[in-house]
Amino acid sequence: MNDAAPRPPELELANVSRTYFAGGAEEVRALRTLDLRIASGSFVSVEGPSGCGKTTMLNLVGLLDAPTSGEVRWDGHSVGGLSDRERARLRLRSVGFIFQRFYLLPTLTAQENVELPMRALGLPREDRTRRAAELLSEVGLSDRGRAFPHQLSGGEEQRVAVARALANQPGLLLADEPTGELDSGNTRAILDLLVRVRSARSATLLLVTHNPEVAARAGRHLTMRDGSVVRDVAGN
C-alpha cells in the first residue's frame, strides 16, 4: 500500500444541533448550536463531563449520525445530502473509528478484524493479508495476528482496534475515550501510538478523553458542557 493517503478533510460544523427524542415527549438536547472548524491534519482533544455531547459531536463528524439542524461540511461541502450508501463509502475510505470498548468482532482473529474494512473495500486477499500484518506490526502485535479478542489483553485489543481504524488509510481518526478502560501504562502506550500514527500520516485526530495527560498532547483543546463548546484553546 504505497499509494499516498488522501489529504484529510477540512471539517466544519455550522450551527449544528442534535436533539434525541427518547420515548414520548421527553427530549434530550445533546448538542445546541455548535459552530466549529477543524483544520486538516490537526490533533484536537475534546473534554467534558459525561453526557455533554462529546460522542454526539464525534458521531456527527464521522457521519454516523445526522444533525437535527445546521450543517456538517467536509472541505466546504455539506454532507447532509449524501445517501446512506455514499456516507458508508466515505466512512470506509476516510474515517477510522476507535471506541472505548474496542468493539472487535469476537469470532474473528486480530488479523481478520484488521482486514475487515479492506474486505468491505474489495481489496484482494493477498493485499489485505499483507497490509493487516504490516499494521499489526506497526502497533506492536506482529505475533498476535492469529489470536481471538478474548485471548488478548485490554491494551492489545485497543491496539488491534487502532490498526483496524488505520486499515484503509483514513484521513480522519475519531477516538472516543480510547483509553477509558485501560490502565495508565497501556493508556500511555496507546496514546503514543495514536500520536505516532497520526503524525506519520498527517491525519486529523479528534480525541475524546477525560484524561488531562492525554489532552495535553493535543494541538487544540475543546471543553464541552451541556451540548456546547465552552472553551477552545490552542495547545503546545
Binding site: 464521522g62 458508508a88 470506509l92 468482532l105 468491505a120 483496524r164
Partner: peptide, 12 residues
Amino acid sequence: ELALLRAIGYSR
C-alpha cells in the same frame, strides 16, 4: 457488531 460494521463503512 452489526453497528460496528456499519461504522467501519459497510453499507446497509
